[in-house]
Design a protein around this nucleic acid. Structure first.
Length: 550
RNA sequence: GGGCCCGUGGCUCAGCAUGGAUAGAGCGACGGCCUUCUAAGCCGUAGGUCGCGGGUUCAAAUCCCGCCGGGUCCGCCA
């Protein structure tokens, strides 16, 4: 709805979109008078007044003010009414800007050599939230986890697995990482083992059956554990695509041939792409002297496949992949292929420094989830009216919500330092705050039904300033969805939902609903129900369960 | 050394793309609010040279240049 208001304002003014923005002083404010003032050498106020005098009225534009050269637009009562009615009418479907298209999102893609740690889940949460929001926008989204099964670290893991076995009583990813860590140590002490790692990698790439069996077993075990963790986080992938597939299905050969035909390869024993014209210092090797390929080669092959199957594809990658990510994009461009859009996120580090799977220096997602759950459980225990099963369910939902929100609310480009104390603190405006606001809405509506007065009837002219502010916020849902789709910053939506919850709590404070006279009660019940729908739909986009009581 | 990212009250962050009206939240601190729809809530007070220095502009947290501090990348690793 807000999008329609904005469109009307833009049509009225007939100015470039960048002169019209959201503001604390109005629903939309226009700054065009400042620009014109310079050209015309007159005061902005004078110009703004002139502009306003000529404007034709519009349905959704209620009033227009000129203040210090700003032209301030406010929505009409009709707009407020249509907003509430649309929300109540569309219910689960409310909030979609209804755009079209198909997109592939690749995210998480952690090496299958151990459990996901708190850095990986930043990737998962950004990727999954983007997926949910893009689907809401109307796009057809497919998600993939790219399984790096050909890496050196997998060879090391496989070797460790063969040599030491694993503890079958443990969650498989946690068991696998022990073999990886142990083997790394072994190699450090006996560098001659490097040769074995290398042999194993060559055998795997060339299709040696025993090697394939071993790798597959190890990778499947790690993935089994990883999938379980992702499930707990409400993160879902449509497919797990194995890197080695592209060697076996011919895509690697095809991409090499394409590179060759474009004259991009320098064959000097190894096959090399020279990107110095584009400002890269180092050359990119795509085929070793011994004939094996490299990570980037398989990644190029993967992106050839993406080009053939999707019109738009997005990768969520850690900032450490910036250089290789950009090289990949540039090489694809040189081939006349479409490069992926990449969402880079900065590292999650521990107070004592960065994490390392190889050294066993990390906090696993599983450990984090359990600790946050235990903490949530303590708070829920205080609710006497709930039974044991409900308490567990609520604690689980609150824990996952808190966790997902903590990661998604931070802009991807911000480096994060993990802090246990903050991760375990629910007494602040985060997911539980939004869930709580939603539960409050549900509670009011439940009581309205119980007391036999469930009717809803919103009236624009009854709106107090706080109600008006809340409803305008509710109208911005699809506008925010669209912003995330365009800017690929899911934190925008987290912030939006927090604002809605905040505005609702302001409303809740001094607008009694059930005790109000019938006309006012029906009006406010409509607002509560619409808020409930927005909070519920919004929480779902963040992968957080909207609780009806807590 | 070079590239990229970050630097906003004691702490964590929003705002920066497309410059504009008193720089917003939360945590922490202090003081209040549960015979009224869930106190996981609400209200109030204190706390800011938007890292530093220049520049552009009628106007800079936002754009440009230089510096400082932190992170990260720069393998025939992935």
């Amino acid at each position: 709805m807000f999008l329609r208001f904005k469109r009307e304002v833009l049509k009225m003014l007939n100015v470039d979109e960048r002169y019209v923005k959201e503001s604390d002083h109005a629903d939309l404010a226009c700054t065009i008078a400042f620009k014109l003032a310079k050209e015309q050498k007159r005061s902005p106020q004078e110009i703004a007044e002139e502009i306003v005098a000529e404007l034709e009225p519009r349905e959704y534009v209620g009033s227009i003010e000129v203040v210090n050269g700003y032209i301030n637009f406010f929505v009409s009562e009709e707009f407020l009414e249509d907003t509430i009615n649309l929300i109540l009418d569309q219910d689960y479907d409310y909030g979609s800007p209804k755009i079209k298209g198909e997109v592939l999102i690749e995210h998480t893609s952690a090496n299958p050599d151990g459990p996901l740690h708190i850095g990986h889940i930043r990737n998962s949460i950004i990727g999954d939230t983007l997926t949910r929001i893009m689907r809401k926008a109307g796009l057809k989204v497919r998600t993939q986890y790219y399984v790096n099964d050909m890496g050196r670290q997998i060879a090391i893991t496989a070797l460790g697995y063969k040599r030491f076995g694993i503890d079958r009583s443990k969650k498989p990813d946690h068991a696998i990482v022990e073999a990886y860590i142990k083997m790394n140590k072994e190699i450090e002490e006996n560098p001659e083992l490097e040769k074995e790692v290398e042999d194993l990698m060559i055998r795997y790439e060339s299709g040696d059956e025993e090697a394939i069996r071993l790798f597959r077993e190890v990778v499947e075990l790690a993935l089994e554990g990883i999938k379980e963790t992702l499930r707990k986080l409400n993160v879902q992938h449509d497919e797990f695509v194995w890197e080695s597939e592209f060697v076996r299905n011919g895509y690697v050969d095809r991409i090499l041939k394409m590179l060759d035909e474009k004259g991009l390869l320098k064959k000097d024993g190894a096959w090399i792409i020279d990107l110095s014209d584009l400002g890269y210092e180092k050359e990119v090797v795509v085929r070793r002297e011994n004939g094996t390929t490299l990570y980037v080669t398989r990644d190029l092959a993967y992106h050839l496949w993406k080009n053939e199957n999707f019109e738009r594809f997005i990768n969520v990658l850690g900032a450490d992949h910036k250089l290789v990510g950009r090289q990949l994009q540039d090489i694809l461009r040189l081939l006349g292929l479409k490069p992926p859009e990449i969402v880079f996120f900065e590292f999650v580090s521990l107070p004592e420094g960065s994490m390392s799977t190889r050294k066993g220096k990390f906090i696993s997602a599983d450990e984090l989830i359990e600790k946050v759950y235990e903490e949530a459980k303590k708070i829920v225990e205080g609710r006497k009216e709930l039974n044991e099963e409900e308490k567990e369910h609520i604690a689980r939902a609150v824990a996952i919500g808190a966790l997902r929100f903590d990661f998604v609310k931070i802009a991807p480009e911000k480096p994060m330092v993990f802090d246990w104390r903050k991760a375990l603190d629910f007494e602040r405006q985060t997911a539980s705050y939004i869930q709580y606001s939603h539960a409050r809405c549900c509670s009011i509506l439940r009581k309205a039904v119980e007391s036999g007065m469930p009717d809803l009837d919103f009236k624009g002219d009854l709106c107090t300033p706080l109600e008006r502010k809340l409803v305008v916020l509710l109208s911005k849902f699809s506008y925010m969805v669209l912003r995330v789709v365009n800017e690929l910053k899911p934190n925008i939506f987290a912030d939006y939902l927090l604002k809605v919850a905040n505005a609702f709590n302001d409303f809740y404070r001094d607008h009694p609903v059930l005790k109000a006279d019938s006309e006012l009660r029906m009006h406010r019940l409509a607002i509560v129900d619409a808020t409930r729908i927005v909070l519920r739909n919004g929480l779902e986009l963040l992968g957080i369960e909207p609780l009806e009581r807590m």
